[in-house]
Nucleic acid binder design. Structure first.
Lengths: 215, 215
DNA sequence: GTCTATATACAGATAGAC
DNA sequence: GTCTATCTGTATATAGAC
């Protein structure tokens, strides 16, 4: 039965609201890019999730790559905002490290697509869109923090770059590998549920802290 | 200047050697799948790298997915072989953990495409091709090892599943994020060179061991 | 600002000669 | 067993009506 009333389920009608539409597109694109990367994402799929037509993506963002950059930009801004809330310099190194990982993982819990997106960015796009900036916002504060811990004698001697990378790794790998590791737990468990996230955060912090403290 | 002699550089001539050709295709496919995943990989690119035509991929492996499965199969076999060389049960928990990570990272050094491939497998394919098997070979031995350490009183109380995942994470993230993190070091450094790999391995083992030992 | 319809390019896959 | 040529589907992107 064709006709205007038989339209199949769309997320919402065509609400002629530019900002809302842009946001909805970005939200859908973020999910799609997180799943397939720039290469694997399909503009048609993004449009379908959004509830607008493909043409709108091009109207607002020029092309697929422009949309991708907008997603990265927004993701980066969010991450920065979340991490800058914690004042690392007012805390002792160990407490600062705990606070940093906690804030980082809370942010990942809210914005679950970021680890995969940044991962894709490195592996599929050779970091050509964002590695410099992501590094400055995420890794350098951590490296500085570790250096401060070493200087104060609380942390062991270490290569701060490698350790910083490994700490981000042990914190984010869980979110990037969920589908590979879910069989470790009982079937149907929600790895993103509050209890599991808390468990993961707790273990991640313990591992990170114990891994850098002087024996 | 057309003609049979002006053929542009191919990896090798058409050597009518089935096994060699299959191996060459698998090698090239592994690189391509590691870079783009099942979705992003291009059969044309694989053929170009191999030096045979696209038709050969289909002749030997049926379709793209068949080739992908063959790559996974071979990668899995290699990983199993590398990990089973170390006899975990004959070592004390701490030494076993060191040996396990060392063997794992040595294998990653030899076979550099695996972390990315398994990562893609989880994130892009929802682990539908391999998560069960990869889990059995990689995570369960580690979980058992951690449990043994807890039982013996040498390791702290922990959630062995989370800790195992985090240990694999801190060990592999480096290889999956190279292009994102390379700016932490001086320009042009080879993150896969022997010195850097040794540094990474050393730090990874220290972090993993310190993270599980009883204080 | 949003949609429908379509142009253009390219990727996966196959047929058939050699 | 390998290649060339090609079919077919699908993806990005655009033109133009509303």
């Amino acid at each position: 039965m064709p006709g205007p009333a038989s339209k199949t389920e769309k997320q919402s009608p065509a609400t002629r609201d530019p900002e809302a539409t842009k946001t909805r597109i970005l939200d859908a694109a973020e999910v799609e890019f997180a799943q397939g990367g720039l290469l694997g994402a399909r503009t048609e799929a993004i449009a379908a999730k959004t509830g607008v037509t493909k043409a709108m993506l091009y109207y607002y963002f020029g092309d697929k790559e422009g949309l991708y950059l907008a997603v990265l930009e927004r993701a980066y801004t969010r991450r920065m905002a979340a991490l800058q809330k914690v004042d690392l310099h007012s805390l002792e190194p160990e407490q600062a490290l705990r606070a940093f990982i906690s804030a980082f993982l809370d942010e990942v819990g809210v914005n679950r697509n970021l680890p995969a997106i940044f991962f894709y960015e490195g592996i599929q796009n050779q970091g050509r869109f964002y590695s410099q900036i992501a590094m400055q916002s995420l890794y350098m504060p951590l490296v500085d923090l570790l250096q401060r811990g070493m200087d104060s004698g609380k942390f062991r001697q270490m290569n701060t770059f490698h350790v910083a990378v490994n700490i981000i790794g042990l914190s984010t790998f869980y979110f990037c590998s969920m589908e590979n590791i879910k069989h470790l737990w009982e079937p149907g468990i929600d790895l993103l549920g509050p209890e599991m996230r808390e468990q993961h955060k707790s273990e991640a912090i313990q591992q990170a802290v114990a891994g850098v403290l002087k024996l």
